[in-house]
Simulated assay, not measured.
Amino acid sequence: MAQVGVVSEVVEVVKVKEGKKGYPFWLGGVAASFAASCTHPLDLTKVRLQAAGDKGMISSMRKTISTAGIRGLYDGLTGTLLRQMTYSMTRFAAYDWAKGVVHKGPGPPPGYKMALAGCIAGTLAGIVGNPAELIMVRMQADKAKPVSDRYNYRNSIQGIYRMTRDEGLVSWTRGMVPNVYRSIFTNMSQLASYDYFKRELSHRGILQEGPFLHFFASLGAGTVATTVCSPMDVLKSRIMNAHGAGTTSMMEVIRTSLAKEGPMFVFKGWVPAWTRLQPTTILIFLTLEQMRKAVDGYRSSGEEYL
Rank of each mutant, 00 (worst) to 15 (best):
R238E: 13
L42V: 12
A225R: 05
K20D: 13
G53K: 01
G126E: 04
L219H: 02
N241E: 12
R204Q: 02
A192I: 06
C38V: 10
C119Q: 03
R238Q: 09
A192S: 09
G129P: 00
D75E: 12
R204F: 11
A52D: 14
K143T: 06
A32K: 02
K46C: 15
F212T: 09
D149N: 13
C119Y: 00
E289N: 07
T64I: 15
K21G: 07
M176E: 06
T186Y: 14
A221T: 13
R182M: 08
F197E: 01
R83C: 08
R48D: 08
K113V: 04
G244P: 00
K55Q: 12
S237Q: 10
L288D: 01
F265K: 06
R165G: 00
K198N: 09
K268M: 07
G69K: 03
S8K: 12
L44W: 01
T281H: 01
A32F: 15
L207K: 02
G118E: 03
L219C: 14
L42F: 15
T86G: 10
V4Q: 14
W26F: 15
M176A: 11
P110H: 04
G205R: 02
S237N: 08
M264A: 13
E252K: 10
G76H: 02
R204D: 11
T227G: 05
S156Y: 10
Y151N: 03
R204E: 10
F285K: 04
H243D: 01
M163E: 01
L201K: 08
I239L: 09
K113Q: 09
T275G: 07
K268Y: 13
A93I: 09
W274M: 07
P41F: 15
T67D: 13
E200D: 11
G100D: 04
Y87N: 02
M163T: 10
Y161L: 11
D233R: 03
I184E: 00
G22H: 12
K55G: 04
K293Y: 12
D75S: 11
G118C: 09
K268N: 00
Q3A: 08
M264W: 12
M89E: 00
K268V: 01
G72W: 13
V6W: 00
S33I: 15
F92M: 03
T287C: 03
L286W: 06
K198C: 14
G269H: 07
N241S: 06
R299E: 10
D54F: 13
R165S: 05
T223Y: 01
